[in-house]
C-alpha cells in the first residue's frame, strides 16, 4: 500500500495533515513558527493576542511531570497594536500552512476590539480563548457563562468577515456539549477543545510554598487525554461543528483516538516537550503507519468513528 494521504478539510480549509501547534507553545516570532512548520505541523496557532500589553506571570511558569504538566504562563502579550512586524513576517507562512490567530479579552468589547484588528490581517481561522484558567480576569468564568459566550461569538462574527471563528472551550464546565451548542447557535464555525484542566497546584514540601509563581496552573499533557477525548466525543454528539481536538496527544495513536472521538484536526502542545519540536512529523508518520496496518486510505473514515453503530 502506498503512503496514505493525511489530508483533511477543516472549515473548508485544506490541511495537508491534521496536526496543529496548540496556542501558547512557541511562536513568539514568525521564525519560530516557521521552524514548527518545518517540523511537520500544518496548523500554527499564534500565542494568544490580547488588547493590551500583559507580562504574564513570574517563574516558574511550567512544571513538567512524567504524565502531565502544570502551567501558568499567564497570557503574555505585547498587545495587538505592537505586532505589525510579526504579521508581515507571517505572510509567507500562509501559503503552505494554516495560520490560527488566538485572541483573548477581559470583556466582550475587548474581544471585539482585538478580533476586528486581527481579522484585517486575514489569518485562516480566529480562535477565541474563552477558557484560560491562569488569569484572574480572563478566567474560566467566561467559558461557564453561556450568555457571555453567545454574546462574544455573535459580536465577533459581526466584525470578522469570512474568517472562521473557533471558540476554545474549557473542560471545567458542567456540560461542555451544552456550551458547544450555544457556540453553534451563536454562529461559531468550529470548536477547539479543550483548554487545560483545573487549575491544579503543586507544593514544594521543604519550603512549604506552591512551586508555580501564580500558585495554580492548568493541567495538560498525557494525563489530560481521556478528559479531552470525552469532551470531543460529547461535542461531536451535540453539534455539527468541526472540532480541533487538543489535550494530551503525543503520538499517532493518540491522534487517531481523538479523531475517532470526533476531531477533524488535532492540536499538540505539551507533546512538544515530551517528544521534541518534531513531534508533529513523528505523529504524522505514526498515523500513516497505523493507516497502512489497518488498511485506511482516507482519514475521513475515522473521524467520529467511535460514534457509529
Amino acid at each position: 500500500m502506498s503512503i496514505p494521504s493525511l489530508q483533511v478539510n477543516f472549515c473548508n480549509l485544506p490541511f495537508s495533515n491534521p496536526t496543529v501547534l496548540a496556542s501558547g507553545i512557541l511562536g513568539i516570532n514568525a521564525q519560530q513558527l516557521k521552524r514548527v512548520a518545518e517540523a511537520g505541523a500544518c496548523g500554527l496557532t499564534l500565542k494568544s493576542i490580547g488588547p493590551r500589553a500583559r507580562l504574564g506571570h513570574n517563574n516558574p511558569v511550567i512544571l513538567p511531570y512524567e504524565q502531565y504538566m502544570l502551567n501558568a504562563v499567564g497570557l503574555p502579550t505585547p498587545g495587538y497594536k505592537e505586532m505589525e512586524e510579526k504579521w508581515q513576517e507571517l505572510e509567507s507562512l500562509k501559503k503552505k500552512n494554516i495560520l490560527i490567530a488566538s485572541i483573548f479579552g477581559g470583556t466582550v468589547e475587548e474581544f471585539v476590539e482585538v478580533a476586528e484588528y486581527v481579522a484585517n490581517k486575514s489569518p485562516h481561522i480566529i480562535e477565541l480563548n474563552l477558557s484560560c484558567p491562569n488569569s484572574d480576569e480572563h478566567g474560566t468564568a467566561f467559558a461557564n457563562n453561556t450568555s457571555i459566550v453567545q454574546e462574544v461569538i455573535s459580536k465577533v462574527k459581526a466584525v470578522s468577515g469570512d474568517i472562521p471563528i473557533m471558540p476554545k472551550l474549557s473542560p471545567n464546565v458542567m456540560d461542555i456539549a451544552e456550551v458547544a451548542r450555544y457556540c453553534e447557535m451563536s454562529g461559531a464555525d468550529a470548536i477547539c477543545a479543550i483548554n487545560t484542566l483545573g487549575p491544579g497546584m503543586a507544593i514544594d514540601i521543604s519550603s512549604r510554598k506552591p512551586i508555580l509563581a501564580y500558585k495554580k496552573g492548568g493541567l495538560s499533557g498525557p494525563a489530560l487525554k481521556p478528559i479531552a477525548v470525552r469532551c470531543v466525543y460529547d461535542i461531536h454528539s451535540a453539534t455539527k461543528l468541526p472540532i480541533l481536538g487538543v489535550g494530551g496527544i503525543t503520538n499517532g495513536e493518540d491522534a487517531i483516538e481523538m479523531m475517532m472521538a470526533g476531531a477533524t484536526v488535532v492540536g499538540i502542545g505539551s507533546g512538544v516537550y515530551y517528544r521534541g519540536i518534531d513531534v508533529f512529523s513523528k505523529v504524522c508518520n505514526e498515523m500513516q503507519q497505523w493507516m497502512i496496518k489497518n488498511n485506511i486510505s482516507d482519514l475521513q473514515e475515522i473521524i467520529g468513528a467511535a460514534h457509529r453503530q
Partner: peptide, 10 residues
C-alpha cells in the same frame, strides 16, 4: 527566559 526547556518560546 520563562520555562527554561523549549516550550514557551520566550
Amino acid at each position: 527566559m520563562k520555562c527554561g526547556f523549549g516550550l514557551c518560546g520566550q
